[in-house]
Nucleic acid binder design. Structure first.
Lengths: 224, 224
DNA sequence: ACGCTAAATAAACACCGTTAGGTAATTAGG
DNA sequence: CCTAATTACCTAACGGTGTTTATTTAGCGT
């Protein structure tokens, strides 16, 4: 009978890489719920307890995944707007890129934006408004900054109906998030037209549901 | 030493009520993650295994909670629009009621609308479009129907920029969901003005981000 | 070649959802 | 009223989870 394979010692850096890689694989494969320390360890070829030599706990592994998520998101957003000068089109492309990125990374998106306290706060996404975030901006806050910046451009040029940039950026973000979140959670829902829904959501946020001049009682822009 | 307290047998109906009540209490108290069969059982005063006499599994308990959630949501939406005739104001009130209800039941909302496959599909919310849902509408599909109906009124009266009622209802829903979902998950996020954000989101969906006549390249309403 | 550091291990803890099988309380039938 | 059937409930266990402790041992520096 073969004795168990000889214990191999790897450099901490290499093992960390392996562990994160295995976690990511299980992650996007079977979904966040089914990523366990034991499965990660088996994938890597070590015992579950060995992981704790390299990560304080499970959260610490997920934290790395979250950071990578924000890093890739930032790159996707930046690439989406880089070759465009018109502010509104920049904003539209940023939203579209955000939605596309979210929908193509559903498990990570769920972890970051749909799990209490896992993403934003801990990864320090926190809109670049706090002093701390302004000093050492995280990839997350930079990602939000892309959206925020696009909105700011439009506001500064007097293109918008409303002037509070911060509030507008949050509202725009919420709209995009609503689409991503809903389609991820209920991907079996009988959506009439997913692609059309995305376009309509963006258009609604930009142009509104109503015909121009259609009167409506509204707290922010009372017409009636 | 006192022998263990005598075993008390209750009627299945009464026990079911107790179990669901205990689950709901733990639910909104400690959050969905920390609701376990053992804790429910301890709260009720029975052993964990006894629960399986009344519910097939944990999901079955959550299912009852989901049904109640939809039932209460439907009532909240109905009450919000009952004394209003103007279509747009009915729609606005329905959205506001949806958001308020979600934010005041964060744990249940998370379970229903932010957990894969738990809510809509299984509770049969499924927009009242499928034949099955039209025949025996669930509380969930009726709740969506309130939103759907309000949108339909506005569309029928030619008040809207776009004519696809189904798509519009989904987009409006996504917008409201975005707010609720984001504020629930990131309730520690430095929102500049939560109340203002809700109003702005609704106004954005109705009136749009842009000044009237502000040109923008758009897939749905090209102006440039 | 030796000794030290630390990566890896084995074993255990407390928790989870769920199941099998035995006990006993309630109820139906005679 | 006594018996028999039903079934609510319990005890014990299984395999899973994250994590901790004590121990072994690989690999590097002297």
């Amino acid at each position: 009978m073969p004795g168990r394979p000889p214990r191999r010692r790897l450099s901490p850096e290499e093992r960390r890489r392996q562990i994160v890689a295995a976690a990511k694989a299980l992650f996007s494969g079977e979904g966040i719920e089914h990523v366990s320390m034991r499965k990660i360890a088996k994938e890597v070829g070590i015992t579950q307890a060995a992981i704790y030599q390299h990560f304080e706990n499970k959260e610490a592994i997920l934290f790395v995944i979250i950071e990578d998520f924000f890093s890739d998101l930032l790159e996707a957003l930046s690439r989406a707007i880089e070759s465009e000068a018109q502010p509104l089109e920049r904003l539209r492309r940023a939203m579209r890129a955000y939605i596309d990125y979210g929908l193509s990374h559903p498990e990570a998106y769920r972890l970051v934006f749909m799990t209490p306290m896992s993403g934003l706060v801990r990864a320090g996404m926190a809109v670049p408004r706090t002093e701390e975030a302004k000093a050492r901006p995280s990839k997350g806050s930079l990602a939000f900054g892309v959206l925020d910046g696009a909105v700011r451009e439009a506001v500064n040029r007097g293109m918008t109906r409303h002037g509070d940039t911060d509030l507008l950026a949050e509202a725009i973000w919420a709209g995009g998030h609503g689409i991503v979140s809903l389609m991820i959670t209920h991907n079996e829902f009988p959506w009439t037209d997913p692609e059309g829904l995305i376009d309509l959501e963006i258009d609604l946020l930009f142009r509104g549901l109503l015909h121009e001049g259609c009167p409506m009682r509204s707290k922010m822009f009372p017409t009636v």
